[in-house]
């Protein structure tokens, strides 16, 4: 809210992306709609994105946040590649969050590689939008 007062036109931009070949889109769709309704500008790129495409899109769209939706079990390697890609493009300021079916024991590993937060099944979308707003305004 403070952010909005400071600058009426400032909008938080979020890229919702599905890396890899996994085609389960329900979570990504629900989050995309939910973040839109929370007032964010959401860029949705659909299925079968390579990590390189995701990094390129994030750079061109200059998003504040990348939300990766992964249900295939490949979350560790895919998240790692996105974060490395951002690093090589001087874009480490872009926040990466991950959602999907993520075993509890993998969450600390994801955070150690630079993922800001992990949202598993049952998370309300409002929790995700609150997290994003708080992270952006504290930056």
């Amino acid at each position: 809210m403070d952010q909005k007062k400071m600058n009426m036109e400032k909008k938080i931009r979020v890229l919702v992306a599905k890396p890899g070949l996994d085609g389960h889109e329900r979570g990504a769709h629900v989050v995309a709609y939910g973040l839109r309704d929370a007032g964010f500008e959401v860029i949705y790129t659909g299925l079968r994105q390579t990590t390189k495409q995701i990094v390129n899109t994030a750079i061109q769209e200059d998003v504040d946040v990348i939300g990766l939706s992964i249900l295939s079990g490949a979350h560790l390697s895919l998240s790692q590649k996105v974060i490395e890609g951002l690093k090589t493009q001087d874009a480490e300021d872009i926040i990466v969050i991950v959602g999907g079916i993520i075993p509890e024991e993998d969450i600390p590993l994801l955070k150690a590689m630079g993922v800001c937060e992990v949202f598993t099944a049952g998370t309300p979308v409002s929790a995700i939008s609150d997290f994003i707003s708080a992270s952006i305004s504290s930056n």
Partner: peptide
Amino acid sequence: SSPFTGGALLGDRLRMKKIFN
């Protein structure tokens, strides 16, 4: 943009995968 929330769903890239990279 939504006139109510100010949010937007920007999905044109979905149809442009061929040229992404």
